[in-house]
Every structure is written in C-alpha cells, then in structure tokens.
Computed example of a mutant assay.
Amino acid sequence: MTDLRSTERFSDRVADYVRYRPDYPQALVGWLHGLGVDADWTVADIGAGTGISSRLFLDAGHRVTGVEPNAPMRDAARQWLAGAEGFRAHDGTAEATGLPDASVDLVIAGQAFHWFDPVAVRREFARLLTPRGLVAIFWNTRRLVGTPFLEGYERLLHQYGIDYVSVAERYADDDTMARWFGHGYRGMASFPHTQRLDYAQLLGRTLSSSYMPMAGHPNHEPLLVALRALFDATQSGGTIAFDYDTRIFAGHPDT
C-alpha cells in the first residue's frame, strides 16, 4: 500500500532477506495436493520476492511464474532460482499482474499478502484462475510467547521497531480470510515451523524485517546491543529457536 511503500521498503534488505528469511514447511504442498492440486498445475507466485515460496513449489514439480514489482528482489529470485527448471520472473503487481486470463491453475501468495489491496487482488486472482484452479494464501506467524527468547524479542520489536505495530496489524485473522474467499472457501491448516539461528543469523533475520532500523537510524545501535544481550541470555548451544505457526488458506475467491 502506498502509505507504507510496500513495493519499495525491502529494496535495501534483499541480501538479508535471501539469506535469513524462513522458508515454508513442505506440508503446505501436501495439504494442497489433498485438495486436488497436482504437480502438473501451473503456479503464479504473487509477490514472489526473492523466490522463497516459488522454490517450495518448484521442488514439488510445478512450473512457477514469480510475479514481483520490486526489481532488486526480482533479480535476486532470478539469480537464486537460475538452476531450477520451470521458473520465470515477471514484473507485475498483485493487483495488476499482467498475466493472461484463465492462465494459472494455482495462485499462491505468501508473506507478501498482507501488503495487498484485498478487494483488488480477489478480482485479479479470480481472473487468473483456470476453471479447476485454486488460490492458496499462507504466511509464517511468529510466536509471541512460550519461551524467554520469543517474549524478549517481541518486547525488542516494540521498543526499537520503526513502524512495527502498523505492519503487524495488517495480518488477517482466520475469520477474515474465510470471508475473503467467500463461498469458494475450502479450508485452512496450520503447521509448526522453526528456524535455529546463531547470533549472526538472528541479526540478519532481524534486519530483514522492513520495520527494523538500519544503520544510520538512531535506534539501530541500541537495537544491536539489546539483541546481543537477548541472544546471550536465551541461547542454548549457541543458537535460539525462532518459532512460527505457518497458516494456509485455500479456495476459489468470490468476485
């Protein structure tokens, strides 16, 4: 959305995004196959970013078009997935992909979905689908409580994040997603997912978030001090557990 520069705000974080952002559990693909999705279904990954979700479906045998408006992220996806057959990167937005009508069997959107205009993308996604097609929306929801690290990390985001609350509030709850799909809603599932991170990886993961201050911001150095202290106090064997619940919603959206 224009107020938070959704297509631009990750441009200076691409390297950290590629190296430290979590992937998604393979169980997502298995769950979709249980709904009738097959490896011969063509996939459009909307807001593909650096290709994290595209990789998941390429590995499952799908051909994937990664639609991404941010040029540095699109270039990173091309470079990272250069050896994967069946991938192409496409310059387009979620609301105006530029892909042909009824050209895609499975439209997917990962973590980027919370930046989209929900009304416009529902129309666009429905336009792209073949008659048998489905839309699958999924993202990693970071656990906020349950361990000293998780609880300390949430406090750290509130203290040092630039617009953390504004971004966090953009994630939809389960009922909102069911309403977004309407009568074509097929259901949802949730899967546990974890990253084990050493300090360097934790730092990269933290700075990959668009609401965290980069070098030169007055919050940047205090953030580094607080993050190091949190890691040292909560690590076990030189790593911490960055825990998520990965939620997926699927169906054929009403128009």
Rank of each mutant, 00 (worst) to 15 (best):
M212K: 03
D45C: 07
R196Q: 09
D45T: 09
L224P: 01
A94I: 07
P218D: 01
I108S: 03
F249R: 03
V64F: 05
V67F: 11
G184S: 04
T42R: 15
D38S: 13
Y185V: 04
Q159R: 13
V225K: 13
V107E: 02
F125W: 14
R74W: 09
R155V: 03
G49E: 02
G182W: 00
R55D: 12
G204D: 00
L203R: 15
G86L: 07
R179N: 08
H252P: 12
A233E: 02
F125R: 06
Q201F: 01
A77S: 14
A229Y: 00
T239G: 01
E124L: 07
F249A: 05
G110F: 03
G204K: 06
T65A: 13
D117E: 02
D38R: 15
G251P: 06
L224E: 04
A44F: 08
H90N: 14
R74I: 10
Y17H: 10
A168I: 09
P192L: 02
L35A: 10
D174G: 04
I108Y: 06
L129C: 07
M73K: 05
S208H: 04
V165E: 15
F138E: 06
Y20W: 11
Y185F: 10
D75H: 14
L203K: 14
R132M: 11
D16E: 13
T176K: 12
S54Y: 02
Y164C: 07
L28K: 05
Y160F: 13
G98N: 15
L203C: 09
G83M: 03
I137W: 08
F231E: 00
R123L: 07
A136M: 09
S209E: 07
L81K: 03
W115V: 05
G49Q: 01
L106F: 08
V104E: 05
P213H: 06
L144K: 12
F242N: 12
W80P: 06
R196H: 11
Y20T: 02
V121R: 01
L150M: 08
D243P: 03
A126E: 11
D40N: 12
A226M: 05
D254M: 08
R122M: 08
P253H: 06
T65L: 12
P148E: 04
G34C: 06
I248W: 08
G66H: 08
M1L: 14
R179Q: 14
P131Q: 05
S103R: 10
A82G: 01
G36I: 06
L203Y: 13
D45L: 09
Y160W: 12
S166D: 14
A178P: 03
R143V: 03
V64E: 00
R21E: 04
I162F: 01
D174V: 10
W180K: 09
R5H: 15
G92P: 10
E151C: 00
L223R: 00
E85W: 10
P69F: 06
G51A: 07
E95D: 02
F125H: 10
H33G: 12
E95T: 01
A233N: 00
T97Y: 12
T97S: 15
L58H: 05
Y24V: 03
A48V: 06
L32D: 00
T246N: 07
N219K: 09
D45I: 05
T206P: 01
D173W: 05
V121L: 05
A102G: 11
F116Y: 04
